[in-house]
Nucleic acid binder design. Structure first.
Lengths: 196, 196
DNA sequence: GTCTATAAATCGATAGAC
DNA sequence: GTCTATCGATTTATAGAC
């Protein structure tokens, strides 16, 4: 290993802090996650956190961005590999079972969304993030429809809004009552794809 | 006005505190609502709050129960008055626009749900509340279907789960981005009712 | 049952040294 | 850029008087 330049060293500090923050925010939620503990667990002090991130909200926003990249990467790579529509829907069902089943992510997304109450700046940041997520879903729907030669029952944006709504609402209910089925989310996707 | 007995006086204290708490929790959310301010605004002291409610969580649970009674009362009374299915759906659309448009309620429900993380006792309380809400929705769907002679595409429980999921997810997104349409919720109800 | 007073515990954010 | 030390501002919950 060559020596790190100052820039590389700082990038590593930031990376370590961010990776540690992901775990803490997922495990404890926004309010209960402590910047002090995150810093300590990452091997730094709280000052390092504030040197690399503006405040707790911005750190959480970056944490959520990273988590979303991971989750979306999982589903897009798997969907691209499937040929028939049935297989794609089945693959989506397995992804949903795992992902919506992970209540830590849903609860963190939702808890952070509620913070839109406290500041217009946060609200805009959250709105932008949600917009991006809907865009990703719209792309997936369009891709699935085109590569299978079907016409969706809804235009991509409306489809994405509907799918994300069910995903959020069902995810939250399943975080509270894990015995609830994932069917509504999978069925929603299937109906949109086949119902044209 | 006759004099109040001790029991009546205490019932009135409780009622005043609860009514004041509804406004504070709706306006500021769970975390930002202060028991001290609620008590003061109601004309009592914090001690009175703890004499009438076990703690902040139980007070919030009662607050949510009362709000739900109000909201559900609105929609059930209006739906009962309508004759045709189209009218009922249109009436539901107006109710949804008002209710899902009231982001204070959605945000409070969601914020309190997230607290299921911190204690199994709260989680059970929240789960019971959600169960009741789904039961109410199932009843409305069944009533609408029977009184209009249609067979819903889903059984009442599945229908309620789907409708509540869309309601929660769309409500949260609309709390952040109010320009989003209410259509997904109304369309979901219509499709379930007509799709059998 | 209600009030006053206080306990007790955080935690986010900043200032200044290095 | 990072660390140490500290500020500052709250709030829930309780103990004891009335």
């Amino acid at each position: 290993m060559a020596r790190l330049t100052r820039q590389e060293a700082q990038a590593m500090t930031r990376e370590t802090l961010l990776a540690t923050a992901v775990e803490h925010f997922l495990d404890r939620g926004y309010a209960a996650a402590s910047l002090d503990q995150i810093a300590e667990d990452a091997g730094y002090s709280k000052g390092a956190v504030y040197s690399n991130f503006k405040n707790k909200d911005e750190l959480c926003a970056e944490v959520l961005g990273r988590i979303r990249l991971t989750k979306v990467g999982e589903i897009t790579s798997q969907l691209g590999a499937n040929s028939t529509l049935d297989e794609a829907v089945a693959e989506f069902a397995r992804w949903a079972e795992r992902t919506i089943g992970d209540k830590r992510w849903t609860l963190l997304e939702v808890e952070f969304s509620v913070r839109s109450r406290h500041s217009e700046e946060i609200r805009e940041k959250i709105a932008t993030g949600a917009d991006q997520v809907r865009g990703l879903i719209a792309g997936v729907v369009q891709h699935l429809a085109e590569s299978n030669g079907v016409t969706p029952a809804l235009d991509p944006n409306a489809a994405a809004l509907r799918i994300l709504s069910v995903g959020i609402g069902l995810g939250l209910q399943r975080a509270i009552s894990p015995e609830l089925p994932v069917d509504p989310l999978v069925d929603t996707l299937r109906e949109i794809l086949l119902g044209g």
